[in-house]
Amino acid sequence: MVRPLGFLVGLGFITALVLAIFTTPLKNEPNVAYSFVKHPRHVKLASDGLVPHWDKAQLQRGMQVYKEVCSACHSLNLVAFRNIQDLGYTEGQVKTFAKGFQVPSVNPDTGEVATRDGLPSDHFPAPYANDVAARAANNNAIPPDLSLITKAREGGKDYIYSLLTGYQNPPANLPAELKPGTGLHYNPYFPNLNLAMAKPLADGQVTYADGTKASVDQMAKDVTAFLVWTAEPKLVKRVQVGWAVFFFLLIFTVLAYLSYRNIWADKMH
């Protein structure tokens, strides 16, 4: 009974699928934008690969770029000032750094909305009070929070680096409907080709304390490295612990294999 019924059910599905094949056009709708979107360029960082480390000088430079450029529009909600000790700052430096920010608060006497000096336990304050304000100030596009940005985009760090360095004039053969509209900017690394963010970096925009030349490429690399850290502050520790666990388990597995061979030595199988 099962087999004839199954046969009929199978035939039903197969018929529906065969009809679907013959009714689905084999040609895709042409998508011109595809041919203009570029694949992200690879950026090599110290935190890559199987023996990663944090390049603290680079992370400090990257934080400077975030603070002086990106933070005008982008929040960094998940990062607390205390976290930047990872970048090589002392506790005192962190306190001073935090103090440089005003964070939302209430007046302890009157209960009125106020601000106070930042503490190491505070997170980086957001540039806008809320999403409506963020939209209103940015041509109706909310600047995304950057805490997780290198994990939250296809292409990760490569994408962020490519986007920051990828601003250019639209190619001459770009169809009119793909040309950037008012308030939009052409960037072939952005999936829609045109984005609301204007080219954020220009040569010499920041002055690095360590004397590194602040080219667009250098700043893009530095801030990308910083954003890799903000997305996963435990990345380096994770890989280091991973090797310890891996070698421990490797020894366990070798011993388990030898004991298996030993126990089965007298049994043909």
Partner: peptide, 26 residues
Amino acid sequence: PYYTAKDGFGLGVFLLVFVALTFFSP
């Protein structure tokens, strides 16, 4: 002890793959 030993070895290999995924490419 025959299959406990063999499963012990299998468990080791399984955990090695698991660890590689979790720590190196989560």
